[in-house]
Each structure stands twice: as structure tokens, then as C-alpha cells.
Design a protein around this nucleic acid. Sequence first.
DNA 1: ATCGATAGTAGGAAAATCTTTTGCTTGCAA
DNA 2: TTGCAAGCAAAAGATTTTCCTACTATCGAT
Lengths: 156, 156
Amino acid sequence: MTRSFEPDATDRAILRLIQRDAALSLAEIAKEVGLTPTPCWKRIRKMEQDGVITERVVILDPEKVGLGVSVFVAIETGDHSAAWIETFASTVAKMPEIVECWRLGGDVDYLLRVVVSDMTAFDGFYRRLTAQVPSLRKVTSRFAMERVKSTTALPI
Amino acid sequence: MTRSFEPDATDRAILRLIQRDAALSLAEIAKEVGLTPTPCWKRIRKMEQDGVITERVVILDPEKVGLGVSVFVAIETGDHSAAWIETFASTVAKMPEIVECWRLGGDVDYLLRVVVSDMTAFDGFYRRLTAQVPSLRKVTSRFAMERVKSTTALPI
DNA sequence: ATCGATAGTAGGAAAATCTTTTGCTTGCAA
DNA sequence: TTGCAAGCAAAAGATTTTCCTACTATCGAT
């Protein structure tokens, strides 16, 4: 099986740039990578079509919009059935405070990052979560004191 | 102290839209929120100047660029001095595999998310990390089996 | 093997189209 | 009546399309 996307050095250079600043104009991107706007645009469009680039978004300052509290919630479940997993996944999808949810290997089954305005809001979230999801064996919440680093740019 | 940014319902509607799709044209955004392009553009520019919108980026599919492995690394340190914290923070900043680093309250001091291509690459990362950062009392690595949810959109 | 024809890939120039930005005007509310 | 916020229209700028060229690899006939 051959991959439909085989990025060359130029593709990766483009990705490195627009992962950090998608507001760059084609002219600027092209200049950086040593091309003219047209082939550069064609490469970007291809990477969008191939699903390499999945979205274009703006990133907000959580503090500035009053959502400065991140909480990591580690979950161990007592029920590993398909039905439980489905309930859990659909609950996670529906709760916008949950910005990340990972299934892990090892002692912890799931790790969530939850974004809220304050502790009171987190308590409300916690009650809703535990009310909706059955068979939670252990739920451990850890509050983030400081965001040391947070980037959407993958190390290409 | 008055906040320099007091978003109204329209500002929030704009943010909700462009948090999910920053490729929308002003005409489309304006139509959605019930304005014409100009005032809409002025609001967005103001939010950029106020630092509410911090960046515009593209998001990549980690699998498609060969970086499908996320590992959570929980760190307990034996040294809480300012000098240690500085060493640690600068190491974190320099290692592009670390896409998130949070300082937590409670038993775990720091939680990292590390993005790599495979286990071998993680092992290389792990060796470099532990070689660079002194006084690590406990380092626990948990591999992500599945990305259940991951969004950059804050619940505004 | 060598030649030429052919198809596929990547780049570039220019034109067309669409978006963003600016300047100016209007309406509304304090 | 003064100060915002919105709107309109035109200008400036960016994106997208079209068309063309250059290079490379493949294939068949000689």
C-alpha cells in the first residue's frame, strides 16, 4: 500500500510555516519556501484534499474569554463493554468543556482535559459527568496551575 | 479594573464560528451573525489587537504526517528551586515533541503530552529529556491508544 | 541500445475573481 | 450633540483559475 501523501521537503516547509501562522499570504509563504504563489497554492490545496490539513482555526487566549481553568480528569472505569464505551464517547462528544479526551494504556483508562471558568463551574461539570456516565470506578481531578507550553504545531 | 475586552453576544458568535473554521470569508461570517462584512471585520481586528485571538493556524492530521503516537508523561520533581524550574521550562520550550506542558496542583508536578512517530522515537525523546533535566524523582509515561476527542475550540 | 513520441509532474505568468480594507456617511443612544 | 456602531461603496490586495513551459520517465519501434 502506497501512501497518497508523500510530502517532500517543500511540503514540510509549507506545513511548518502555516502550522504557526495561517494568516501568511501565499506570496509570503511562496517566498519563504522558494516558489511562486501558484505551485505553492496547489500544494496546499492538495494537502487539504488529502486530509493532511484538517482545519483552519483561530486560537483564543483562554484567560481573555474567562476560561482560564484547565483540569485534568483521570478516569478508571469498572465497565469495559462496548455499550459503556459508546455512552462514554457520546457524552464526551456532547460536553464542550471537554476539549481533549484520550484513551490510555495502563492503569488509567481515560484522560480528559476540561476547560472551565472557575472551580464552581468545574464542580457543576463534575456532577453532570458523573451523573451521565455509569460505572466510574475512580475519577481523579488535577487542576492546572500554569500552562508552561501549549502548541498546535506538530514537530515536522 | 475594567477589562479591555467585553465581548457581547455578537463577538461571541463570531468567535464560535472562527474557532471552528477560520477559512470562512467575512461575507459568510457576517451573514451568520447578522451583520455586514465591515463591522464584522472591525470586531475581529479589535479582538486580535486585544489579544483575545492569539493566532491563526492550520491543524494537521497527526497520522498523515507520521506522528500518530501521543504519550502523556507525568513528572514529579525532587527539586522545587527557581533554578530547577528555569532549566525545566527552557528544556520544555526547546523540545518540539512536547506539545503541551502543564504544572499541576497535587501529587503530580508536571504533565506533558509528547508527540512522536513511534515507540523508538519516544525512547529517544525520553533519554534526551531525562539527560537534560536533573532531579527527576518520578517519571510515568502513559501511551495514548485512541484520540477520542481533541479540539482547539473553547466552550464560549 | 537508441531514438522519438507521449504522458505525467512541477513550476510560472497573467488574468479573472473574490476578499479585505479604507474612507465616508448614517442612525441611534447616552 | 457627541460618541459609537453599523453600513455602503470604492480601492487595494489576495486568491484562484487558466494556460503554457520544462523536465522526467516510460514505451514501442527501429
